[in-house]
């Protein structure tokens, strides 16, 4: 019988990984096959010898370099993660800013001369009224409302 059929089972037999029926068949073959017995001996010796190959010590300071690299990557990752609250604050600021700009561009309505009008002025002046989102850079743009009497304009 050709040994090729048994070849792959030889390693699994050494490792105790054959099923009961595979094991019985192979052991019967090994009784009569000198070539396969020789192969088993060599593979077993090879496996034993591979385990004796030593590993040299790591290069000096290797672990310091490895851990520094991991800490650096960890820090960088933390910095790139933006919390949902930050996104919400940014979105709210953008809405407010757009609202302020829209009001600025709105043409004064034809109101009656006696009716007061409101002019929104976007400015950075110190005497402005904060909208309460000063932590967000977008909210540094402060809208101030200046009430004026329409009659003062005309």
């Amino acid at each position: 019988m050709s040994c090729q059929r048994w070849s792959e089972q030889l390693s699994a037999w050494i490792d105790g990984m054959l099923t009961e029926s595979e094991r019985r068949s192979l052991e019967a073959h090994l009784q009569s096959c000198e070539t396969c017995r020789q192969t088993v001996e060599e593979l077993r010796e090879l496996k034993d010898k591979l385990q004796t190959i030593p590993v040299p010590s790591p290069k000096p300071e290797m672990w310091n370099r490895v851990m520094r690299h991991i800490r650096y990557r960890a820090r960088r990752k933390r910095l790139t993660v933006v919390k949902p609250a930050t996104w919400l604050a940014a979105a709210a600021s953008a809405v407010l800013l757009l609202g302020a700009i829209a009001l600025l561009w709105q043409k004064p309505t034809t109101s009656s001369p006696k009716e007061p009008t409101i002019n929104f002025i976007v400015s950075y002046h110190a005497d402005t009224v904060s909208l309460g989102l000063s932590d967000n850079p977008l909210c540094h743009l402060i809208a101030t409302a200046e009430l004026s009497e329409a009659e003062g304009h005309e």
């Binding site: 792959e8 390693s11 699994a12 593979l43 090879l46 496996k47």
Partner: peptide, 13 residues
């Protein structure tokens, strides 16, 4: 795994 291991061992042998 079984197949690769055996073929690797045969090559190493």
């Amino acid at each position: 795994i079984r197949s690769r291991l055996h073929r690797a061992r045969i090559l190493l042998r």
